[in-house]
Design a protein around this nucleic acid. Structure first.
Ligand SMILES: [Mn+2]
Ligand SMILES: [Mn+2]
Ligand SMILES: [Zn+2]
Ligand SMILES: [Zn+2]
Lengths: 139, 139
DNA sequence: AATAGACTTTGTACTCATTATATTATAACA
DNA sequence: TGTTATAATATAATGAGTACAAAGTCTATT
């Protein structure tokens, strides 16, 4: 899933009912190539030098569209910002309070046995841990 | 744990190294009596009629203090707001996209077997699901 | 009781992520 | 080519949260 070329991303967007544009394709490629759970602001700052007329509104519009079409997940690790993840494999996240990085954690979330959820329709499951990562812990 | 009286809350705050005040005690009591994961704004609006001079800054100050002293957990279900929970029993949350309610879900989060977390120091674990609740699903 | 010092509460102004709106650009198509 | 739909952009507005300083409250000491 790492570093699809643009032609490949174009057909992926079309498959998912999204009309491709340079902006949309590059933003999606950036998310796949950089699984660092960036904010809209970080995406904008990274791509702005290359897409010289890029607008922050376009980034927000695009992220809303991607979430609606189900090719990107919003991640809420802090109350004042939304982060995005193009990885839909079953995994959780660990936010280091020290260096601020968000790590992917492979985890098996099985909710089928929870009786409280009878009748509930689950659309997404997220697990978030916080603390200090290995590097920050041994200092 | 439901509806402690004020005297009881006073000693609870003191136990947790928090100097008690009417505002702090009533805010904590409200959180225990109303486990609906309110935002700072909701806490303010609910208590304002009673604590007639209450300031929103006081609510924010108090929530920060409670989180720092470990008697309240911040919950991030949406990117633009923080919700608060005085319940420290092991449980996750389910946010209904339809009615907006946040439900408590009893769940057993065992992370001891995850090899990726070797060397990581876990401070908090949260699990969040979203979708539609039982009531909203059968309509 | 008055004084002083420490802590708490409050109002105002500000920041900054996100959203709303209107305009311009681009693509699709007859 | 002209017409229409969709996308991108710039600008202004919103709203949760924060910074700061002034005013209020509590408690100990005289
Ligand atoms: Mn991830
Ligand atoms: Mn809860
Ligand atoms: Zn770290
Ligand atoms: Zn519902």
């Amino acid at each position: 899933m790492i570093s699809k070329n643009m032609a490949c991303i174009k057909s992926f967007l079309i498959e998912n009912d999204i009309k491709p544009s340079i902006q949309r394709a590059r933003i999606y490629q950036f998310l796949v190539d950089n699984p660092i759970h960036p904010t809209a602001d970080e995406i904008y700052n990274q791509l702005n030098p290359e897409l010289i007329t890029l607008s922050k509104t376009t980034v927000y519009n695009t992220m809303h569209l991607f979430v609606e079409k189900g090719i990107v997940q919003p991640i809420h690790v802090e109350g004042n910002e939304v982060r995005y993840d193009a990885d839909f494999s079953q995994h959780g996240h660990f936010k280091c309070d020290c260096c601020g990085k968000v790590f992917d954690i492979n985890i098996d979330l099985n909710t089928s046995s929870i009786t409280q959820l009878k009748g509930f329709k689950i659309k997404s499951i997220q697990m978030l841990m916080s603390g200090t990562c290995e590097k920050c812990s041994c200092q």
